[in-house]
């Protein structure tokens, strides 16, 4: 088990290193870093002063060492907009995104297990067909449009829910969570259904039934545990992809999370903040990948054993 964990940490760390180095390379190799960091209206004097102050006139290698040092001490400089530390801004925005994404994934997984198992319990039934059709449409829905339609119907026309913002009771959560939910939910229902159809037709299910286990116990105790690994893999990928949705949803609903921070810093050319936000996201994804691998190992003993290559 420790060998397995160590291996997974090393292989998940590679993308993280690539992201860290990639940001550095992109910022240096495209020419003038002042163009990236300073607003478009900056004067030539401001540029030279900026380059000298930040050491951009030194050799690339020593710049790289400086940059890596800054990454490890989590120092990305100051935001051009607010003058606050970029890392601080990213970390303050982070919990809002985490709450939103966590709630969404929890609802998506629980919902998909219930609906998917229900559809798989009687393949080809009406329930199964409706679930397939709905989940397919959900998977091909543009989330930004879905959000705007939600605002149009429930906020503008009916006035039941607020158009945006985070201040208020549970009603501010409804539209953001549902918008973020549709895509992962649609995909997960399909995966749970497929996986459960296979599991429910396995011989051990027949054995469990003939020894007199109750139907819920057969479905959720025996079949679900064996159907879980593929669902877990896809759920992990979807959680990584949730960042895509979070950027859109946070922008539309004015949710003060990391996705909105990224878009704002792009539109206002604030590279230090963008860099900090991207790295916070990359570290989260790194941690998430390890967590998923550990869950796999807990569910399936075969994964734990390290097979010699």
């Amino acid at each position: 088990m420790p060998t397995f964990v160590r291996r997974r940490i090393v292989s998940s760390a590679i993308p993280l290193v690539v992201v860290v180095l990639g940001v550095f390379c992109l910022a240096r190799l495209t020419g003038d870093p002042a163009k990236l960091y300073l607003p478009l209206s900056a004067t030539p004097e401001m540029r030279t002063e900026f380059l000298a102050r930040n050491g951009f006139d030194r050799p690339v290698l020593s710049q790289l060492l400086d940059y890596l040092g800054n990454v490890f001490t989590f120092d990305f400089g100051e935001s051009l907009r607010t003058g606050q530390s970029a890392a601080g801004m990213a970390l303050r925005a982070f919990p809002a995104t985490l709450q939103l994404a966590g709630t969404t994934m929890l609802l998506a997984i629980v919902g998909a297990i219930v609906i998917g198992s229900w559809a798989a319990y009687r393949p080809n039934s009406v329930a199964d067909r409706i679930a397939s059709l709905l989940s397919m449409t959900a998977g091909s829905m543009p989330d930004f449009w879905f959000a705007i339609m939600g605002v149009l119907i429930f906020a503008v026309t009916l006035g039941w829910l607020p158009t945006s913002g985070v201040v208020g009771g549970p009603e501010v959560w409804v539209l953001p969570v549902i918008t973020l939910l549709i895509r992962p939910f649609g995909v997960l229902v399909q995966v749970v259904r497929g996986s459960m159809v296979t599991a429910l037709s396995a011989p051990y299910v027949k054995v469990a039934r003939s020894k007199g286990a109750s139907e819920p116990r057969v479905v959720f105790g025996h079949a679900l545990r064996n159907a879980a690994p593929p669902v877990l893999t896809v759920a992990g990928d979807l959680t990584v992809g949730l960042v895509n949705g979070a950027v859109v949803v946070e922008t539309i609903f004015g949710w003060p999370g990391i996705g909105k921070l990224m878009i704002d810093s792009i539109l206002q050319r604030d590279f230090a903040v963008l860099q900090a936000a991207v790295l916070v996201t990359a570290v989260t994804i790194f941690a998430l990948n390890i967590l998923i691998d550990l869950c796999h190992a807990l569910l399936d003993a075969r994964v734990r054993q390290v097979v010699p290559a």
Partner: peptide, 10 residues
């Protein structure tokens, strides 16, 4: 392992 929108954003 990196969200495509994030890649595009950068």
């Amino acid at each position: 392992s990196f969200p495509s929108l994030l890649l595009a954003v950068v």
